[in-house]
């Protein structure tokens, strides 16, 4: 019961933060709302018993990626970032019914899925030896190749980001000469 209450609190916090991300126009506020949403989602993970994912959510998402966004934001001049109309209102009005429709469809899918899903199988096993350990052991045995590929993708992404974002002298032909 206590768990459920905590979960509801975190959930409400996460939904409200998400709405803040979407609705606020000042990018700095948006980043703060995003940070809040990420922390609340980490809370949801903890409540669900996924301590490892929750910790990684806090460390990587809430710290590293958010800071990265702030870095990028500082590269953009303020007068650009603080533009008045930061939303497409017509699109929003048109898209809203479709979002509702998506909710309805997702609701049907989830209901069907929950009805079709089997009961708990490994709960006891996980509780006995601890969640993080099980995740780690399975990650490094069964999903080892996927893990290696993801690490390669990270490397590629890093190289790509550096290549795309670096200064190229010939683009500033007016300045360098």
């Amino acid at each position: 019961m206590f768990k459920l209450i905590v979960f509801i609190i975190f959930s409400a916090w996460a939904v409200i933060s998400s709405l803040g991300v979407v609705l606020f126009s000042n990018p700095v506020y948006v980043i703060l709302w995003l940070l809040s949403a990420l922390i609340s989602i980490a809370g949801i993970f903890f409540v669900a018993g996924a301590e490892l994912v929750g910790a990684i959510q806090l460390i990587i998402y809430a710290v590293a990626i958010a800071v990265f966004y702030i870095f990028v934001l500082t590269a953009v001049p303020w007068e650009k970032a603080l533009k008045k109309d930061s939303h497409y209102r017509v699109e929003g009005v048109i898209a809203f019914p479709f979002i509702i429709l998506l909710y309805i469809e997702m609701f049907i899918v989830f209901t069907l899925g929950v009805m079709a899903s089997p009961k708990k199988q490994l709960k006891l096993f996980i509780e006995r030896i601890g969640n993080a350990e099980v995740v780690g052991s399975i990650l490094f045995s069964k999903y080892f190749i996927a893990f290696e590929i993801v690490s390669l993708v990270l490397l590629m992404g890093m190289i790509g980001a550096v290549l795309i974002g670096r200064k190229e002298s010939q683009t500033y032909d007016g300045d360098t000469s």
Binding site: A95, L102, E105
Partner: peptide
Amino acid sequence: FFLLLGIVLIL
């Protein structure tokens, strides 16, 4: 937005 339309339609 068209992506959303597609998702809704296909679902």
